[in-house]
Each structure stands twice: as structure tokens, then as C-alpha cells.
Amino acid sequence: MRLSWNVAGAFVVGGAVSLALVAFVYPGTLGAGAASTSHDTVIAQTQWGPLTESDRDFVVKVRAAGLWEYPVGQMGLQKGTSKAVVVASQHLVDGHSALDTTCRKIAPMLNITLPNVASPQQQGFVFTLTADNGEQFDTDFANILRMTHGSIFNTVAKIRSTTKNTLVRALADQANDTVLDHITVMEKTGLVDFEQTLAKQTAPPTLPASDVTPPPPAFGQPTVVLAPPPRATSTPVDIDAISTGGAAPGSVLPTG
């Protein structure tokens, strides 16, 4: 297994160096005016409850996650050499297409600008996996994705337990289920190096904002859509029902 950490804290995998792991980070300035000093600051009062900087950044983080994990899942369907990696890839495509649908639904309702491109750090992960082949792809795939999902898991829980916004809470419910599912399928590959993975996700190095920030979309650029697979099993949250009071937060669209 070619998996190591250099002295600067960069992630070294498959013989290539990508940016260090700080999953789904996005600045508080996107989609709003001046950044405040506290992510608990309410930036808007909406009919679904107050929206804080943390709430807004969480929606953007979920969107940014899909912008690199969805194509990596598609890559794994083609390059994975084990059944477990192929199954994990199917879960990535399926789960992030459903999360993306929810993000794209609630973002305009909450006046949140979504990126169309992942951050340079996240694009570095894609670059590493693009260069990999064979068993090295399987190993790097499982470890990179296990680390990124492990890093965001506590963030999802914090948003779910603190947000006062019904729409953000519903997205957090969906994200919690999806992230846990993706952690599980990565572990089932049998390729995860837990010692290094857990150490890195609990003490990630600090990166400059430019490395962990997905760029805002160009003015007038259509929103990128992460299309669900033909036999999707994950479903987006039924935001219409929640927003009109017809269903409890966390309800999902019927699969049939």
C-alpha cells in the first residue's frame, strides 16, 4: 500500500502529492455580503427559520462534495478492480445525485449561491485517482473517500443538532444517512488504513482558503446537475412537502 504523509502534512498517495485533507470547506462570503466573525450569526430570516453562516456554508459544502465525489464514483465504476470498490462507487453516484437534487432545490429558496466546480483541494483528489490504475486505484479510492467522509461526519451532526432552519435540517438528515452509508461501503472494501485515516481526519493540516474554496460560478452559468443513475435507490428530500408543512423534516420522495 503506497499511502503516507509528508512532514508538511500533505497527502501522498499513489506516488502523487495532492492537497491535504480538509473536507468540504467553503468560505462564508459566497452567496452573501461581508463575512462576519461568527458562523452562528444569523444572516437571513426566512419562512423556514433563521439562516446562519454555518447553515449556508453547510449547504455549499454538501454541494461541493458531490462535485468531486460523483465523478470519482463514475470513475470507480470503470476502474475498480474489486466488487466492493464497484459497489462503493455505485453508492457514491447514487447518494450524491440525491443530495445534489436537495441542495439545488433549497439553495434558491434560501438565496444561497452554489458552486459548479469543486475546490482545488478536491480536484487534487480527482487528479490522483485519475492517474491511478489497478489495485492502487482501489486502495487510494477507499482511503481518500473514507477520510473525507469521516472528516465531515461530525460537521453534519453539529448542523443537525443546532440549526433552526427546517430546510437545512432536512438536508442534514439526508446527509447524515448518506455519509454514514459511504463510510460503511468504504470500510467494506477491506482497504482502509484506519491508523493513518483516523489520525489525519482528527488533526487535519491548515490550508489556505484558496485551496479549499470552490470558485463561485460565472455570471449566468447554468447550474451543473448531477444526474441520478438509471436504477437509483437514494431519493432526495421532499422539500415541497416540508416547505408547505405537509411532511416532517427528513421525509423523502417515493421511489416508485
Score class of each variant (00 low, 15 high):
V86Y: 04
D100M: 11
F194E: 08
M147H: 03
M109R: 15
V179Q: 00
V117R: 15
V87D: 13
R104F: 06
Q201E: 09
L207K: 04
T113H: 01
L167K: 04
F137C: 09
H182D: 07
P120I: 01
V212S: 09
V87R: 11
F141R: 02
T128Q: 15
A88T: 00
T162N: 13
D94V: 03
R146V: 08
A157C: 06
T213G: 07
I159G: 01
F141Y: 15
M186I: 03
S161I: 04
Q122I: 02
A107H: 05
L129Y: 03
S82M: 12
L171T: 00
I152L: 12
A142R: 00
H91C: 10
F153I: 00
S151F: 11
L191Y: 00
G124C: 09
V212Y: 07
Q122N: 15
L114W: 01
G190P: 02
P222E: 08
E187V: 07
S82H: 05
N176D: 14
S82A: 07
F153P: 00
T102Y: 13
P222G: 12
V156Q: 01
T197V: 14
V168K: 03
N165P: 07
M147R: 11
P216T: 03
R146L: 11
A175M: 11
D177H: 11
R104S: 10
S119K: 10
N116Q: 06
T113E: 10
M186F: 02
E135T: 14
V192F: 03
G134Q: 09
K164C: 13
T130I: 11
L99F: 14
S210P: 01
P208L: 08
D181R: 12
